[in-house]
């Protein structure tokens, strides 16, 4: 496949239209959730939290929540699309129509990324509003290109992870178990709410093996110019993570069953 064909654009359009049809559930609900985090942790409790980098806790929290929104929604979009397709029989169509595996893969992960970017953008705007209301100014973007890079590579990686998990899962229960027992702990312990410099040395060593730490700090550097990890490591881990998730998702797509449940 050298150029995306009509089948690819069709599937991508279908994926985007699918989540836009249920905006309340797919876009507005996550925005409300992250807004509550901003209100409770950033505005309410944030005034009592001091960071050595000198930035306010609200400014520190906003990039973490932006990335969390992107990753969660990218994962949920691709996984729920495939799982509901397994349930309704929609997935069988993908096996029957003349579309390449790579077209399916890219349409699903770009679809997930667009939802991730949409929710994270709204989260960022809400965060900026809170910052303006509390500090009287907006947060100037430190490195917009870096911010975009980390959001895109993180969103794509998590959408790819969603594809793999959805093909692996035999029921809804297994899918939600991965979300609850693996992804949420990794995201929450990846530095969304705190800086690792505040942790004891033992927990710092544990935290640095969490790949999400690098993605979240990449976004944090892009927005406020502060990171707990070297930027070169963040680049390397995010890129290797993408290659890894892409390979796993591709194998899942080629080897797994498309039959309905």
């Amino acid at each position: 496949m050298l150029m995306p064909r009509v089948a690819f654009w069709t599937y991508l359009a279908k994926e985007i239209k699918r989540y836009l049809k249920v905006m309340n559930q797919t876009v507005l609900t996550p925005v409300v959730n992250t807004s509550l985090y901003l209100l409770i942790f950033g505005v309410s409790m944030g005034e009592n939290i001091q960071l050595s980098s000198g930035v306010s806790y609200l400014a520190f929290l906003i990039p973490g929540l932006v990335m969390m929104a992107c990753l969660n929604n990218a994962f949920q979009n691709s996984s729920s699309s495939l799982i509901s397709g397994k349930f309704s029989g929609d997935l069988e169509d993908l096996k029957i129509v003349p579309i390449h595996s790579l077209e399916i893969l890219w349409a699903l992960c770009i679809g997930g990324l667009t939802r991730g970017l949409m929710v994270s953008s709204v989260t960022f705007l809400v965060g900026q509003t809170f910052h303006y209301l509390t500090a009287g100014s907006f947060i100037p973007l430190h490195q917009p290109l870096l911010l975009i890079y980390f959001l895109i590579i993180g969103g794509l990686s998590f959408a790819l992870l969603g594809i793999s998990v959805a093909f692996w899962a035999q029921n809804f229960d297994q899918l939600s178990a991965v979300g609850a027992f693996v992804l949420t702990p990794l995201i929450f312990l990846g530095g969304v709410f705190y800086s690792i410099e505040n942790l004891a040395p033992f927990w710092q060593k544990i935290t640095v093996i969490n790949p999400l730490l690098y993605l979240i700090n990449g976004v944090r550097y892009g927005i406020i110019g502060v990171s707990d990890v070297p930027l070169s490591m963040a680049f390397l881990v995010s890129f290797l993570g993408f290659v890894f998730f892409f390979s796993i998702a591709y194998v899942s797509l080629k080897k797994s069953s498309y039959k309905r449940w």
Partner: peptide, 23 residues
């Protein structure tokens, strides 16, 4: 077995399906 197609209406389903065949 009938496929449900979730949120899409009849015309959208057929339009997407045509697209999968490159039309």
């Amino acid at each position: 077995e009938v496929i449900n197609h979730g949120y899409f209406n009849v015309e959208e389903i057929l339009t997407f399906h045509s697209g999968f065949y490159g039309i």
